Simulated assay, not measured.
Amino acid sequence: MRVLIVDDNASMRDLLTALLSSQGYTVVGALEEGNGVMDAIRKLSPEIVCLDYLLPGRDGLDILREINSQLPEIDVLFFTASETPGIEAKAADAGAAGFLRKPFGQKQVIDELRAVCDMRNRASEANSPAETTKSPLPPPTAAGTSAPKAPGKQQPTAVIVDDNSSIRLLLKGLLTELGLQVVGQAANGEEAIRAAKTHQPTVLFLDVNMPILGGLEALPRIVEASPKTAVVMVTGDTSRTIVQQAAGLGARGYVVKPVRPAYVENFLKQLFNT
C-alpha cells in the first residue's frame, strides 16, 4: 500500500514513516502543511493518506472533504490532538476511513491501518464483476419473530444513501459481499425518498447529515413511501439524542462511521435474525 503522510510535526512524520515502512507500506511522501496536498496526491498516487487535522495553510477536514469528493478511491486515516467538540463525527461524515486521537501508540496506528485496508480490500473485491457473493439473507423480521427458513429465498435488496461517494462505494462493496443486491444509491434525502418509492428495497442505509434534506427529516417520508423497508441510519454521531430520535421515527438501528465490515455483518445478522 502506498501512503502519503501529512503532519506539521517533523517528529510525527519521521515516526510514522519509520513505522509504516517497517510494516511493509510504501511511504511516497511526507508533507508538513495543508497547501499542495491535492497536487501531491495526484502526483504521487497514494492509496492511503495519513492526515492531521490542524495544519498550516489549510486544515485537514477541508482537505478530507476534497479528497472524498474528487478521489473517493483513496482512503484517509484522520488524526488529531484537537479537543474540538464533534471533530470525530465530522471526520467520519466527511468520509474518513479511520480515526486516531493523539497521542496514540504504534499498535493503534498499525491496527487502524489494517482495518482500513481490510475494508477497502473487501469492498474492492465485492465490487469486482467476477466476485461471488454470499448466500442471500432472509428478509428482516419484526422484533420478537423468527425468520422463515424456506429454501429458495429471494436475494434481499438495498439502497445506499450518503452524500459521500467514498462511503457509498465502500458500503456497496460490503453489502454485495454479504449477499445483498444494491439496487439504488442516492446523495440526499429527497433522492432517498424517490429511491425508496421506486425500488421498495429490503433495507435502506440512510446517512444522517446530508445536503438538501437530512436523513432524520427524510426518514418518516421514506417509511411512508416504503413501509416494509428496514431503514438503517449511518452516522458518525451516536449521541443518545440522535439514536432515540431515529428510533422514534422508525429506524431499525444504525451503523457507525467509519464503517467496519464486522460491525455491519453482525448488525445485518441481527436484523435478518439469522
Rank of each mutant, 00 (worst) to 15 (best):
M1G: 14
D8L: 01
D8P: 05
A10F: 08
A10L: 11
M12S: 04
R13V: 11
D14K: 12
S22N: 15
Q23D: 14
Y25M: 02
V27Q: 11
G29V: 09
G29D: 09
G29Q: 03
A30D: 04
E32Q: 14
E33R: 15
G36W: 03
G36M: 01
V37N: 03
V37E: 01
D39F: 02
R42F: 00
K43A: 15
S45W: 00
P46T: 01
E47G: 11
E47Y: 02
I48A: 13
I48D: 00
I48Y: 14
L54N: 15
P56R: 02
G60P: 09
G60I: 10
D62H: 06
R65M: 05
R65P: 01
E73V: 01
V76T: 15
L77E: 06
F79K: 04
S82T: 12
P85W: 01
K90V: 11
D93N: 12
G95Q: 03
A97I: 02
G98K: 02
F99V: 14
F104Q: 06
F104C: 12
Q108P: 01
Q108C: 01
I110G: 02
R114A: 03
A115V: 02
C117H: 07
S124F: 07
E125P: 00
A126R: 00
S128K: 02
T132E: 13
S135N: 11
P139D: 09
P139M: 08
P140V: 12
A142D: 09
A150L: 09
V159G: 09
D163Q: 10
I167L: 10
R168F: 01
L170P: 00
L171F: 01
L174T: 03
L175Y: 07
L178V: 08
A186D: 04
A187C: 09
N188F: 07
N188H: 15
N188P: 11
G189H: 00
R194D: 09
R194Q: 12
R194T: 12
A196S: 10
F205Y: 08
F205M: 14
E217Q: 14
E217W: 14
A218N: 14
P220F: 07
R221V: 08
S226C: 01
S226R: 05
A230N: 00
A230H: 06
V231A: 07
M233G: 05
G236H: 13
T238K: 03
T241F: 13
V243H: 00
Q244S: 05
A246R: 06
A247V: 09
L249H: 12
L249Q: 13
Y254H: 08
Y254S: 07
V255F: 14
V259F: 09
P261W: 04
V264L: 05
V264G: 04
L268E: 04
K269A: 10
K269D: 09
